[in-house]
């Protein structure tokens, strides 16, 4: 199954729409609700990052029988130092983002914690591409 969602940057009223839709879809397909929760939390964190930092973004989701792959691509300022951005507590979020309850510098690390595979690449002045994969079958 393949789904795509656009993310409007700067609009906090719509953040979480893609994650919410994915949760509804996954609840029908995946029996283990802990897996569903991990995946939707990871996507929600990624959506917040796009809305908080980028100019626009796209979520591309592919669900197979054994795994889900989610790409979150954004056009934005990019991340100059990914290793630094991955550190818990490091944040460049604005005051507005912090007032929304985010921007504590935990998002990327939490995305990684909630997925089985995590890949990120970024080009300054162009944007950031995140790919996350989660296994849907517990061994």
């Amino acid at each position: 199954m393949h789904f795509e969602f656009d993310i409007e940057a700067g609009d906090f009223s719509k953040v979480g729409y893609a994650s919410s839709q994915l949760k509804k879809i996954m609840k029908q397909l995946v029996g283990d609700h802990k897996i569903v929760k991990r995946v939707v939390v990871a996507l929600y964190e990624a959506e917040v990052n796009v809305v908080a930092h980028a100019y626009s973004g796209k979520v591309i989701i592919d669900i197979n029988t054994d795994k889900i792959e989610i790409k979150v691509n954004d056009k934005g300022p990019g991340i100059p130092d990914i290793q630094l951005a991955m550190q818990e507590g490091y944040s460049t979020a604005s005051e507005q983002v912090r007032e929304m309850g985010f921007g504590a510098g935990m998002g990327l690390a939490n995305i990684k914690n909630n997925t089985d595979e995590f890949y990120i690449k970024s080009e300054v002045g162009v944007g950031t591409s995140l790919t996350i994969i989660a296994n849907l079958i517990t061994e």
């Binding site: 906090f12 979480g16 929760k37 929600y44 929304m100 309850g101």
Partner: peptide, 15 residues
């Protein structure tokens, strides 16, 4: 004490 839509969305994602 955070009364906004993100509190609801966060609860939704976190069960």
């Amino acid at each position: 004490g955070l009364a906004n839509l993100q509190a609801i969305r966060t609860a939704e994602m976190s069960d």
